[in-house]
């Protein structure tokens, strides 16, 4: 493992080349090329149906692509189940609808991957979980069940659950879209904190304030392709493509 890590240290975190994906006859991702450096924070935005969620779901193989190459942390994605699991171990994911396990307590939600994937002793798994729950400031709710928490609290637990695997990359799939306005900030604060600590992040989100503060690069997608990518300042102040301008005027306009 260590040897492998050393070899990977200077490779990019994620490399995507010539990615194409179809749902039946619908061409949802078209010739995607994307390289994510270690520690880079990327925000992906675009109208609904533009393929942005599908793109990040391909990175941990929740969606299967038909053409192209994905390399995560130096490991090329294949259809081999063991390889897929190995890649997923390095990739944490946070979903729009939290997807916490409702029959497990908050603590057990955090321990499940440590117990069954990392094969850690219970005490150690609980210690790690509590430390991470502390970081997202929800350690006092560890014994509760997801159904007893507010949406914002649940999403913070979901972030903690993903972090418990000590991933190298975090994928966020519209993490605040299902939240009430007053809860969005508590989740964004956690994400900003995470960015400060140097985590590599790919966020699909429409929170443009978040993009301005933390993103190294903003990517705009439409019709399954990357239309424009630029550092946030340039992206928001001088968008080049007409489509980008239209999109920005729509979401910032009111």
């Amino acid at each position: 493992m260590n040897q492998a890590n050393a070899a990977q240290a200077d490779s990019p975190m994620i490399e995507i080349a010539g990615l194409n994906k179809w749902y039946g006859d619908f061409h949802v991702l078209r010739d995607i090329d994307l390289t994510v450096a270690r520690g880079e924070r990327i925000v992906i935005c675009g109208p609904s149906g533009s393929g942005k969620s599908t793109l990040i779901r391909c990175i941990n193989h929740l969606e299967e692509h038909q053409e192209g190459r994905i390399v995560v942390n130096g490991m090329p994605m294949t259809r081999d189940v063991k390889r897929i699991e190995q890649i997923r171990r390095n990739v944490g994911m946070v979903f729009q609808h939290f997807n916490l396990f409702p029959h497990l307590s908050v603590l057990d939600n955090c321990c499940i991957s440590q117990t069954w994937v990392q094969k850690k002793p219970r005490a150690e798994a609980e210690r790690t979980s509590m430390e991470i729950l502390e970081r997202v400031q929800i350690a006092d709710q560890a014994r509760k069940y997801p159904g007893q928490l507010s949406g914002g609290q649940q999403q913070r637990v979901a972030i903690a659950r993903a972090l418990c695997m000590q991933p190298e990359v975090m994928l966020f799939d519209e993490p605040t879209s299902a939240l009430d306005p007053e809860m969005i900030k508590e989740v964004l604060d956690v994400m900003v904190e995470l960015a400060r600590e140097g985590m590599t992040m790919l966020c699909v989100t429409h929170e443009m304030g978040f993009a301005k503060t933390v993103a190294d690069r903003v990517i705009f997608m439409d019709q399954g392709q990357i239309i424009e990518q630029a550092p946030p300042e340039q992206f928001f102040n001088h968008p080049q493509s007409e489509r980008t301008q239209l999109f920005l005027s729509q979401i910032l306009g009111h």
């Binding site: 179809w22 239309i227 630029a230």
Partner: peptide, 19 residues
């Protein structure tokens, strides 16, 4: 693609390659 880039021409839809 470079970290900063803009696409000027859209990629047309293609048929899925599978069998």
């Amino acid at each position: 693609m470079e970290p900063t880039s803009t696409r000027t021409e859209m990629i047309p839809e293609r048929r899925a390659p599978d069998l």
